[in-house]
Nucleic acid binder design. Structure first.
Lengths: 185, 185
DNA sequence: CGCACAACTTGACACTGACAAGATTGCCCG
DNA sequence: CGGGCAATCTTGTCAGTGTCAAGTTGTGCG
């Protein structure tokens, strides 16, 4: 079961890639550099991921799995949003890659199933919050909630909220923000 | 004033770059390819943009300028949001680059001033909507509105709303969405 | 007219992703 | 227990890229 030479090269390359992406973005990623970090030859990673796109696709699929797991445990819609933001903060590399389709093999089976799983978790949270409105209204509510959480998370990771958030936990700011949103203007 | 050989190589490279980014993302961008498209030697673009980062920084700065111009004309906060979404849809390459700091020279003067200008336009729209609440509450309102619009725009460009939006103008969907958001739950 | 400067070219180097072919190692099955 | 077999990894190579240095060409200005 366990590979022989390195122990688990696949995992090693993945974590090294996540490290690079989290600090310098996906553009700074180099397969040869990852190979060097793992102490293997330059072509070894290709055997596990096929190519650069394959590696990023694997990361995205893993990310959607983690996101689905986190979201499923939410007690209500606001909690789901908080968990979404927390996921983005704790797994910035996954998050960034997940929503950059230009880097991915979008028809990959593992990726599409993981993404569907995460989508189900979100829809469940929405239907719990508004059991009355099924149909198009519920779908719009889902997009609204998703947009708020996703926008906040994205702006957070792109360092556009640094001054406003300060040293507070971003999830607290987000929670305050949602309370503001669902009040009448 | 006008360059001699090409006419206006700077603009030609910029528009070619925007074209590539809009269809295949910033990762697919190659300075040598842009030079070929413009019919110049491989090192010609460097003279105008210094390097790859410089080109992307110039695109981001231009994008913030365009966004500021569009947002300034908004009549109220909802309109500002609609314009934000429309900007993302009409200038997807700019938008994508603007919010990927890993690709940019973040301390570039043109970039920071253009970004500040766009920020002012947003804050003005927020203060028009809520002239009573100045202070931290207004800042939170600004982030909330920004998050909704930015999240919707980002999900739209990453093709996560394709089925829901269908062939309707995305701005209409966004407008319906905001109406839903500012009602009490 | 000629001169300084901006715009562009040519050439080179290190690095990268991808592919092909060979070597090594652990595992399975007879 | 041992021999083949497949997975894992290596070595070598090729085209393409970004970037730098140095040379060329055209242009406007004094």
């Amino acid at each position: 079961m366990s590979p022989y030479h390195h122990g688990d090269l696949r995992r090693a390359v993945l974590t090294a890639a996540l490290d690079v992406i989290a600090t310098d973005g996906p553009a700074a990623l180099s397969l040869r550099d990852l190979a060097r970090r793992a102490g293997v030859s330059h072509a070894a990673p290709a055997h596990h991921f096929r190519d650069r796109t394959g590696l990023l696709t694997a990361i995205a699929a893993e990310g959607f799995g983690l996101l689905a797991a986190a979201t499923t445990e939410a007690v209500d819609l606001k909690d789901a949003g908080v968990r979404y933001v927390r996921f983005a903060r704790e797994h910035p590399a996954h998050f960034q890659v997940m929503f950059t389709p230009g880097l991915l093999r979008t028809d990959d089976l593992e990726l599409t199933t993981a993404r569907a799983l995460a989508g189900d978790a979100l829809r469940t949270a929405v239907s719990q919050a508004r059991p009355d409105a099924d149909g198009p209204d519920a779908r719009l509510t889902g997009i609204a909630a998703w947009s708020v959480a996703h926008g906040f998370a994205t702006l957070l990771l792109s360092h556009n909220l640094d001054e406003v958030v300060g040293d507070r936990p971003p999830e607290d700011v987000f929670e305050a923000l949602t309370g503001l949103l669902f009040r009448p203007a």
